[in-house]
Amino acid sequence: MSATTPYGLLYRTVLRRIDPERAHHWAFGLIRLADRVPGLRAAVRARFAPAHPTLAVNALGMRLPGPFGLAAGFDKNAVGPRGLGLLGFDFVEIGTVTGQPQAGNERPRLFRLTEDRALVNRMGFNNEGSAAVAARLAALGGDRPALGVNIGKTKVVPESGAIDDYVTSTERLAGHADYLVVNVSSPNTPGLRDFQAASRLRPLLTAVREAADRTTPGRRVPLLVKIAPDLADEDLDEVADLAVELGLDGIIATNTTIGRDGLRSTPAQVAAAGAGGLSGAPLKERSLAVLRRLYARVGDRVLLVGVGGVESAEDVWERVLAGATLVQGYSGFIYGGPGWTRALHRGLARLLAASPHTTLADAVGADVRRPQP
């Protein structure tokens, strides 16, 4: 983010002084307003979502205008996916949605570490619940971006009831989703990350797959799992092998980290932010390493989605070369503003044109497949 751009100036002088969660609601309100005003809707789309035909990809049974989407967390309740599509996101992931409505953790629960271009959140899956989100998606209508729906465990549900809780959300949401994501990697729901162990993940994914198939007869909704960057390498390998075994459609790598190593922010600033998941630039290298390891393990048998520390077109391109068919961002949107996706698409189109690859599909995993000296 450059302080010389209009958004950079606005961020430096105004937005950074406002509580992050309040600023999010204000900004998202403006995005939704743009979607509701016909003339403004067309103008925003033309300004921020120009087409780049060379970036089109086939993924998860869809033809997408590009590979770059908005990660879960921004639109938890499906209140503004059409507006987000106007800003150039090729797909939008809704959620995380839980079986029951829940308020999430006490405020404040979202913090900026500006020097690190990072966020710390302990939101706690605040959302209106899968029944309300399903009703909203059913009423959404057309002219929307491709939509993934990310589902998680309701906090008050005991671990013994977790699978039933995920199944409830699946039965409500599968019919409205272009793909489903099982989130077992948020650090803000006690015990949730324990479900990343293969012995616990297998029955969960199997139950969700069966529920989705029952709910959408004749249509196979793609199913992905979202994992944490903090997994040990051997645990990553187990998840990768399980995904192949179960015929999972994809893995999203990665969620936020509980680590705080190598930050530029002062210890006092980090302490003030407190516990929660760290996202943004500091996550870049670990998320990339996880992506490379997964691709080396699964190849093209499981689609990979790269997320974590994505700020620029070069970051997107690096993740494609490391094995990602699709790429997502979130924190970069907060720091980059409404023109962020346009800049990413333009830069990515230039990088593809300058490469030896004809399409993005040709480039997926090229760096990992290349013989090492």
Rank of each mutant, 00 (worst) to 15 (best):
S2Q: 11
A3I: 03
P6I: 08
Y7C: 08
G8C: 10
L10N: 04
R12M: 08
R12G: 14
R17C: 15
E21I: 04
E21H: 07
G29F: 06
R32N: 12
P38M: 13
G39M: 05
A46F: 01
F48M: 12
H52C: 05
A59T: 00
L60M: 02
L64T: 00
P65R: 06
G66C: 11
G69E: 02
D75T: 05
N77P: 05
R82M: 07
L84D: 13
L86E: 10
E93R: 03
T96Q: 14
T96K: 10
T98G: 15
R107I: 00
R109M: 06
T114R: 13
L119H: 05
M123C: 15
M123I: 15
M123R: 13
G124N: 10
G124C: 11
F125M: 14
N126K: 11
N127M: 12
E128A: 15
S130A: 15
A132G: 09
A134K: 02
D143R: 08
R144L: 10
R144T: 10
A146Q: 06
L147V: 06
G148M: 05
I151N: 01
K153Y: 07
S160R: 12
R172A: 10
A174W: 03
A174N: 09
G175K: 03
H176Q: 14
A177S: 10
D178M: 03
V184F: 06
N188I: 03
D194S: 12
A198M: 10
R200Y: 01
T206K: 09
V208S: 01
R209C: 00
T216M: 12
P217W: 10
V221M: 06
V221R: 03
A228G: 04
P229L: 06
A232R: 09
A232Q: 08
E234V: 08
D235L: 05
L236K: 01
L236D: 01
A240V: 02
D241W: 05
D241Q: 10
V244F: 13
G247V: 12
L248D: 01
D249R: 01
G250Y: 01
I252L: 12
T254A: 04
T256E: 14
I258P: 02
R264D: 14
T266C: 12
P267G: 05
Q269G: 13
Q269L: 15
A271R: 14
G274W: 11
G277H: 07
L278K: 09
P282L: 11
A289N: 04
A289F: 05
Y295H: 06
Y295M: 04
R301E: 15
R301D: 14
V305T: 10
A313C: 13
D315R: 09
W317Q: 03
V320F: 04
T325G: 06
L326Y: 02
V327W: 04
Q328H: 08
Q328L: 06
Q328P: 07
Y335H: 04
P338E: 14
W340N: 15
R342Y: 06
R342P: 05
L344T: 12
H345Q: 12
R350G: 13
L351P: 08
L352V: 06
A354N: 14
A363F: 00
V364N: 00
V364G: 01
R369D: 15
